[in-house]
Computed example of a mutant assay.
Amino acid sequence: MIISIIFGVITVMNGQEIEKLENDNNDKSNKINDLESKLNEVVNETNELFNSYLRLLLKNLNFTHTERISVYKVYQDRFKLIGRTSIDPTLSSAGRSDYPITDGFIGKGWREGEFFINNLPEITANGGNTYYNAINKINSIPRDVVNNLRMKSRNVFIYRINGYDGNPKAVLVFESLQPICFEKEFIIDKLNGVKQPLVMFIEKNNGVVITENILGV
């Protein structure tokens, strides 16, 4: 009888402890969810502010619906898209979230500080072979990557941005579907007055890290 009572008391106490632990876990889980939600809000607000700034730059460059500006920040030895804008919404949408740091024009611009080209072949020429060969000859890039590009640009300027410490942090990519739309000197001249705010945005933009930590990717 006494043993049964003792066993009953222990069972009740264990049940209360388990319930307390479950409540604590639920409370912590809710706090984590709230924190993740707030972090995502901060990331989204920062990204929107950055894209608004890029839209002003787009206007300052007199870019039309055939042009686009993208910003790639280097994270864990890969390019991560942190900003993009174009008058054409289809060109503004994000493609792949990251890119190899060595491939294509952006890889070349990253290594050399800048890269400019215009008058690339039409994509329709020779089933796209002429266009691909012209790109791949300058800096290798897989054929399927080129085939899947939403914007097959014919005028491109890659400009590397250094951080406050003087080390390379990101690249700006200016593109046009037109064979001859802009010269690099024109872009550089327009950047002279706005480079510091760009550096600030790029330095502060850690949305890549926060989002990936939350998602566990």
Score class of each variant (00 low, 15 high):
188 I>D: 05
187 I>S: 01
62 N>A: 15
125 A>F: 08
109 G>T: 03
58 L>V: 08
24 D>W: 07
135 I>A: 00
172 L>K: 01
124 T>Q: 10
172 L>I: 08
118 N>K: 13
75 Y>M: 04
60 N>A: 15
98 D>P: 01
190 K>A: 13
186 F>Y: 12
108 K>G: 00
104 G>N: 05
48 E>K: 14
92 S>G: 10
161 I>E: 04
157 F>P: 03
107 G>P: 00
147 N>K: 11
135 I>C: 05
38 K>L: 13
16 Q>T: 14
132 Y>V: 06
63 F>W: 03
124 T>P: 02
203 E>H: 05
130 T>Y: 02
207 G>T: 02
131 Y>N: 04
189 D>V: 06
18 I>N: 06
208 V>I: 10
134 A>T: 10
17 E>N: 10
7 F>T: 09
198 L>E: 00
153 S>L: 02
112 E>D: 15
190 K>H: 10
67 E>M: 10
31 K>A: 12
197 P>T: 03
165 D>H: 08
10 I>M: 11
145 V>L: 10
136 N>L: 03
120 L>K: 01
34 D>W: 05
158 I>Y: 01
189 D>Q: 08
191 L>P: 00
79 F>H: 02
151 M>P: 03
7 F>W: 09
217 V>W: 06
117 I>A: 05
165 D>V: 06
5 I>E: 15
147 N>L: 12
193 G>N: 06
143 R>N: 12
45 E>R: 11
187 I>V: 14
69 I>R: 01
79 F>E: 00
187 I>C: 05
103 D>W: 06
33 N>I: 14
28 K>E: 13
142 P>D: 12
92 S>A: 10
197 P>D: 04
27 D>S: 13
19 E>S: 13
192 N>Q: 12
59 K>A: 14
84 R>W: 03
155 N>R: 04
64 T>M: 05
89 P>C: 09
19 E>H: 09
186 F>D: 02
60 N>L: 13
105 F>T: 01
167 N>H: 10
60 N>T: 12
111 R>L: 13
34 D>P: 00
36 E>M: 13
37 S>I: 04
28 K>Q: 15
208 V>T: 13
70 S>K: 10
32 I>S: 08
189 D>N: 15
214 I>S: 03
112 E>V: 04
97 S>D: 07
141 I>A: 02
153 S>C: 06
213 N>A: 07
194 V>T: 07
183 E>A: 11
29 S>R: 12
161 I>W: 03
50 F>W: 03
98 D>T: 07
122 E>H: 10
206 N>C: 03
18 I>W: 05
116 F>Y: 15
61 L>N: 09
124 T>F: 09
151 M>G: 08
183 E>D: 14
